[in-house]
């Protein structure tokens, strides 16, 4: 498996640390309901198809990345910097 880091280029997956679904990007605000925290911490989709998950270029530039890929074909659609995604979303 190879991931194209937006900063470093195409690299072997051994350089990256896998975290989990990109749900982790949507942290509930202070005082959010317990249900929101439950969902944030524990509830995940398990799609057959496109998924977005978080990878850390730990052996490279230390950027956190959102990798959009297919769980069926393993095709990687896009790789974005988490910081871009989050700042863009604000």
């Amino acid at each position: 498996m190879r991931i194209t880091c937006p900063l470093c280029g195409e690299r072997d997956r051994r350089e990256f640390y896998y975290y989990g679904a990109d749900d982790y990007l949507r942290r509930p605000g202070e005082g959010a309901a317990p249900e929101a925290w439950d969902s944030y911490l524990h509830l995940r989709d398990n799609p057959a198809g496109i998924t977005r998950d978080l990878w850390h270029h730990e052996m490279g530039c230390s950027a956190w990345l959102v990798v959009e890929r297919s769980t069926i074909t393993h095709e990687i659609r896009s790789v974005k910097l988490v910081s871009d995604v989050q700042e863009g979303g604000k």
């Binding site: 975290y19 978080l54 850390h56 230390s62 950027a63 956190w64 988490v82 604000k90």
Partner: peptide, 18 residues
């Protein structure tokens, strides 16, 4: 040590990027 470093980077880039 490695875990905390990774965590700090995540909190910064994902939750407090600005």
């Amino acid at each position: 040590a490695g875990l905390v470093m990774r965590h700090l980077e995540f909190v910064h880039q994902a939750l407090r990027p600005s």
